[in-house]
Amino acid sequence: MAGNVEVLLDIKTTLGEGPVWDAESQRLHWVDSADGRIFRSTHMGTELRAWEVGEPIGSIAVGSDNTYFIAALQSGLYRIDMESGNKELLVDPEPDEPQNRLNDGKVDRQGRFVFGSMDTLEEEPSGKLYSYDVSGRLAVLETGVICSNGPCFSPDGSTLYFSDTWTGEIWAYDYNTECGEVSSRRRFTKVDTSGGGAADGATVDSEGYVWQALVYSGTIVRYSPDGAVDRVVEMPVLKTTSLAFGGPDLDVLYVTSMAKPPLPRFPEDGQLRGSVFAVTGLGVTGIAEPRFGM
């Protein structure tokens, strides 16, 4: 099924990223990485609310009681109070890497936040992949990363998928659900970059298939559990950045995009750039994402 693509909200996010559907509150959340904002709406795009965080933001997770966010900002990992907007620094994992910022993240099935960092010029392998739990424990899962993207988990949580965008690969790791450690890194699939696209945000559906946004080519790709391309969805903009299943039945694929490329070498786009899209009719459902520290 090709799916039906509609605009949920045309809000021109400079760098829309990190959609998260919270099944308990029935709300969609996403960020504008460049402008430092968190957004929330209903599944229909109504009741829109925004929080200003004052610096670039890579990703968020909803806290266990739905009163706060865990947010990966440029200067560290923060707790942001939903009512007041106040932010509290939890940990700065890279005080000696001023050229880096924190980027994509996802909560594992046990409530840990797994997030990465990146070189802001997307040139040097100075980034890492981290895990942070409710006790305050920070662990390094991977090093030597240029641009961390697409962490997501198999339905049973025992496989972690992750991309360093400019390697052109998606990796799979054995993931120890008891302690959050990774092992046995292997290539899950080689991303088709012939159309100018690169691996960006990702999610896993209820059948264990991996969905990934290929930024700069305007395509969404579904990979089977063995890494083969199962389906390609064409989007109306080139700079699709990330995606998440949501809606009351978890059967809508929400896709973020960017209105302005972060560096001059990246392409411009059409009038719908920066919109949040809703893709329906895929015949697939997602998995309810856990909250941080659940």
Rank of each mutant, 00 (worst) to 15 (best):
E17N: 02
L8N: 03
E268G: 14
N86H: 12
P95S: 00
R265L: 08
L129D: 04
L160F: 07
Q99T: 12
T120Q: 15
E88S: 10
Q212D: 02
P98F: 07
S184D: 15
V140M: 05
V114N: 11
S163F: 05
W211D: 02
K190G: 00
A213K: 01
G127T: 12
T219N: 00
I38S: 04
E88V: 06
V284W: 01
D92M: 09
F266A: 02
S117E: 10
T193L: 10
G293W: 09
R291G: 02
A228I: 00
L214R: 06
D174G: 09
T14R: 11
R185E: 06
G54E: 07
M294C: 13
E289A: 15
D269A: 12
F115G: 12
R40Y: 00
E55I: 03
G180E: 05
F277K: 09
N176F: 04
W171Y: 15
G208W: 12
G18N: 07
A61K: 08
D10I: 02
Q74G: 05
G227W: 05
V221A: 00
E97R: 14
T120W: 00
L28K: 06
R40D: 01
N149Y: 07
I38C: 05
W21K: 04
D269G: 13
G3M: 09
Y161R: 08
G283Y: 11
S242E: 01
M82Q: 13
Q99D: 13
H29N: 13
P225K: 11
K106G: 04
D133R: 10
N100D: 03
D133A: 09
G270L: 08
C152Q: 05
R109N: 13
T285R: 15
R291C: 04
K87Y: 07
A23F: 06
E17A: 00
E88F: 12
V276F: 05
A172V: 06
Y223W: 11
G270C: 14
Q26I: 04
Y254G: 06
D249G: 07
R27I: 02
E123A: 14
D35P: 00
G144I: 09
I146W: 04
G218P: 10
L138R: 09
C152W: 03
I80Y: 01
N103S: 06
A213P: 04
E17I: 04
T42C: 10
G201L: 02
V20F: 06
E88D: 13
G18E: 01
R187N: 01
L214W: 03
I11D: 09
G281Q: 08
Q74F: 02
W171I: 02
G54P: 13
A23Y: 10
M235G: 11
A278L: 08
E94Y: 09
V31P: 01
H43E: 15
G208P: 14
Y161L: 10
Y216R: 08
P290G: 05
M235D: 09
